[in-house]
Design a binder for these strands. Sequence first.
RNA 1: GUGAGAGUAGCUCAGUCGGUAGAGCAUCGGACUGUGGAUCCGAUGGUCGCGGGUUCAAAUCCCGUCUCUCACCCCA
Length: 420
Amino acid sequence: MINAVKGTRDLLPPDTRVWNRVEETAREVFRLYGFEEIRTPILEPLELFVRSVGEASDIVHKEMYAFTDRGDREVCLRPENTAGVARAYIEHGLARAGGVKKLYYIGPQFRYERPQKGRYREFRQIGAEVLGAADPASDAEVLVMLFDFLRRLGFTGLTVSLNSVGTEECRPRYVEALRDYLAPHIAVLGPDDQRRLEQNPLRVLDSKDPAVKSLVSSAPQMLEFLDPPSAAHHEEMLRLLDAAGIPYKIEPRLVRGLDYYTRTVFEVTAAGLGAQDALLGGGRYDRLISDLGGPKTAGIGFAIGEDRLVDVVSDSFRAAALEGVPVAVIPLSPDDRGYAFALASGLRERGISCDVQTAAKGPGAGLKAAEKRGSRLAVLAGEEERTGRSAVVKDLIKRTQEKVSAESLASYIREREKSQ
RNA sequence: GUGAGAGUAGCUCAGUCGGUAGAGCAUCGGACUGUGGAUCCGAUGGUCGCGGGUUCAAAUCCCGUCUCUCACCCCA
């Protein structure tokens, strides 16, 4: 037997209905906020991620799904989508058009990791980016849109964790202060945290080691080291979030794994996701475009883990997405199939989905199959109905039935579906 | 990349001390030829993940390997 590649999976019905509804909701919300879709290649030059996400990051040094193609090009399956959007933005000269570009994407991403709950080698992200906007109002707008989306999926009680990681101007002073603070306690740090201290000291802040956690709880905080422009940016964003009623909490130890973030970083976690509890993450990346060789362009965005989102989406949203099983049209004998097809066509023209059951094993089998499929209504058509241009509509739950004329069939079914 | 647990019918699982494979559900057929869910009878269904080893004999013990699950690392 040939199995799916490790860490990838098939999404099957009826679950795909939930996925589709989530994506439809995202598209609708993004449209309302003036965002447009961008689709970038799944395959990108390896170099793109080395230069954007960061050579020292785990994503690049151990999680890349990379290989050499037949033309000796170093390529990889994209581990995230912001870099690809930035690449496209530069490549197509979108900056020259001026103004702000608001883009969103929905698609698969790949990281070569050991799979576990909420983590797959192929996973999907729903993300949005605002390019060419340095103003804190963009940070706030992105979060307002995010919460609008989450609310429509039925999430309540979620809070966004917020921090600022400053800029190239003020972060080095903070890193130095953090190193000074940790230096006397180096013995407390395990091997992982010592490595972090070397490579990316900010990561020590979100260590899971209890001893390190308590040590770090009284460490100096980045927010105290922000230079005036970054501090003002942070304050204004918070003011706008307050005005919009967005539930947030300042999390001074929040850092993110991608090297390109500046100033605002945020993340939302959710219960029920196991150890990988980050539902989404994002932040500002004012240097990314220029680092990739484009004009100096500010940017902010987020990525939602769609697999995780679908995992914990509200029961009511899920139930709504799973509603609507086709009406079963059941010919009572093989001779009635033609008439059944005609009835089905009429229903479909009026937007009612239906499937025609085979007549091979008699009406009992047809009804059984319809029930198994979850249909609530069945349309029975035999010789008597065919000659009288009518149909019997049977309620499979109440076990009642009624004869209606062929021409009023669709409206009758609509009424019945509405009343359920 | 590291660690732990698991892998037997389509699904959920049992399988004793090593003795040649089982149940429930599902599927199909029948009781039931214009009306389903219940019940009864019957049938189909297996490379016991894969490979090697020990043994007269391996689903069972040993080694390797693959996959899944969870955790670490890290992240969505």
